Simulated scan of single mutants.
Amino acid sequence: MARIKNFDKKNKKSKFKKFKENKELLLLTIPGTLWFLVFAYLPMFGIALAFKDWKIHGGFLESLIKSEWVGFNNFKFLFGSSDAWLITRNTVLYNLVFIILGIVLPVTLAILLKELLNKKLSKFYQSSMFLPYFLSWVVVSYCLFTFLSPEKGYINSIITSLGGEKISWYTEPKYWVFIIIFMSQWKGVGYGTVVYLASICGIDKSYFEAAMIDGASKWQQIKYITLPLLKPVLIIMFITAVGGIFRADFGLFYQLPKDSGALYPVTNVIDTYVYRGLINLGNIGMSAAAGLYQSFVGLILILVTNGIVRKVDKENAFF
């Protein structure tokens, strides 16, 4: 018993010592911790809304307690709808494309930027690609409208000047699969590029110097040094992206096509469908059920994907 007590005392002292040594770093984590506590963990109590017929009875807690328990009835809004297959298909397929392009394009651009000898030019390109990330989809949608406006759009002006007929872009679903994918990558590729570029810049230069001495070409350096050392970051980004495969960027699918009903076959996803249902029906429980469904499926996908990665390459697993 005395040995156990001594061990506990030493363990507590070592923990306190580590805390003192890293107190500055721990203090820096406080804002992020508070943010997650307020905006991520406290709202989790609202999960109960997914199983209740929400009615306002005063304050939030009073309404939560007095609202009738309806079990899984709210989930029928998603699964019992005639559009359930359409919105699920659109959400998943778009996200699969976004995951693939969201890795290939940023990694390629990050490698190209790293290889530029003119560093000032490299920073200019980097800033230019990163700028669209800060624009809201509302602003982007109006910029796109100047190009695709059926009457005075820039693209239609070019088409008519070449002897063609104007295209009614906002009533033709066949074009919007490509427009949405292009605009999504245009807006988000800068963020991914910065992440991968930071990782590439962190690679020890001695690896490349040794490879150059051995006569390795640029492609061989990328293939045998850059890409293998990027693997941990690639895996983390891939797993987190898979976790959001049942979620869609609301602004991309709602604001960009101007909520045109003619485009619903290719632009209607789970998030926009739930929003329209909430506006029309005013049922908060249904929207809460959809959010819970997306979060639960995302959690399962992360666990499954991480489990597969852990079996293949244990060192690079997320957890």
Score class of each variant (00 low, 15 high):
Gly164Gln: 12
Gly164Met: 09
Leu131Tyr: 14
Lys152Thr: 13
Leu135Pro: 04
Phe124Ile: 14
Phe145Cys: 03
Ser122Lys: 09
Val139Arg: 09
Tyr133Asp: 01
Leu148Ser: 04
Glu151Arg: 12
Phe130Thr: 01
Glu151Lys: 13
Ser141Leu: 09
Leu148His: 06
Tyr125Gly: 01
Phe145Thr: 03
Leu148Arg: 05
Ile158Asp: 07
Lys119Met: 06
Tyr125His: 06
Val140Asn: 02
Phe145Glu: 01
Asn156Glu: 06
Met129Ser: 01
Leu162Phe: 14
Ile158Asn: 08
Phe147Val: 04
Lys123His: 10
Phe147Leu: 15
Leu121Gly: 12
Ser157Met: 10
Lys120Ile: 07
Tyr142Ile: 10
Ser122Ala: 15
Ser161Gly: 14
Thr160Phe: 02
Leu148Val: 05
Leu121Tyr: 12
Ser127Gln: 11
Gly164Ile: 07
Ser136Ala: 10
Phe134His: 07
Ser127Glu: 06
Pro132Val: 01
Ile158Gln: 09
Leu135Gln: 08
Ile158Glu: 07
Tyr133Arg: 04
Tyr142Asp: 09
Tyr133Asn: 04
Gly163Ser: 11
Phe145Asn: 06
Phe124His: 05
Gly163Phe: 08
Met129Val: 02
Tyr142Arg: 13
Val138Tyr: 13
Phe130Ile: 04
Ile158Trp: 13
Leu131Arg: 05
Val138Thr: 12
Thr160Ser: 12
Ser157Cys: 03
Leu144Met: 15
Ile159Thr: 10
Leu135Asn: 08
Phe124Ala: 13
Phe130Ala: 00
Ser149Gln: 05
Tyr133Phe: 14
Lys120His: 11
Leu148Gln: 04
Ile159Cys: 06
Tyr133Gly: 00
Ser149Val: 01
Glu151Pro: 00
Asn118Phe: 11
Ser136Lys: 09
Leu131Pro: 02
Ser136His: 08
Gln126Gly: 03
Ser141Asp: 09
Gly153Glu: 01
Phe134Lys: 07
Ile158Gly: 06
Lys119Asn: 08
Lys119Cys: 07
Val139Ile: 15
Lys119Leu: 08
Met129Arg: 00
Ser136Thr: 15
Ser149Arg: 01
Phe124Asp: 00
Tyr133Pro: 00
Gly153Gln: 02
Phe130Pro: 00
Leu131Glu: 01
Gly164His: 12
Val138Ile: 14
Val139Pro: 04
Ser128Thr: 13
Val138Asp: 10
Pro150Phe: 02
Tyr142Asn: 12
Leu162Asn: 08
Lys120Arg: 15
Glu151Ile: 11
Lys119Tyr: 05
Asn118Ser: 10
Gln126Leu: 10
Glu151Leu: 09
Met129Trp: 03
Thr146Ser: 11
Leu121Trp: 12
Tyr133Cys: 02
Leu131His: 03
Trp137Leu: 04
Lys123Ser: 12
Glu151Cys: 01
Ser127Ala: 14
Pro150Lys: 05
Ser127Phe: 10
Ile159Gly: 02
Leu148Lys: 06
Thr160Ile: 13
Phe134Trp: 10
Ser161Asp: 12
Tyr154Asp: 00
Ile158Phe: 14
Tyr125Val: 07
Phe145Leu: 14
Val138Cys: 08
Leu135Phe: 15
Ile158Pro: 01
Pro132Glu: 00
Met129Leu: 15
Ser157Trp: 04
Met129Ile: 11
Val139Tyr: 11
Tyr142Trp: 15
Ser141Phe: 04
Trp137Arg: 07
Val139Leu: 15
Leu121Asn: 08
Trp137Pro: 02
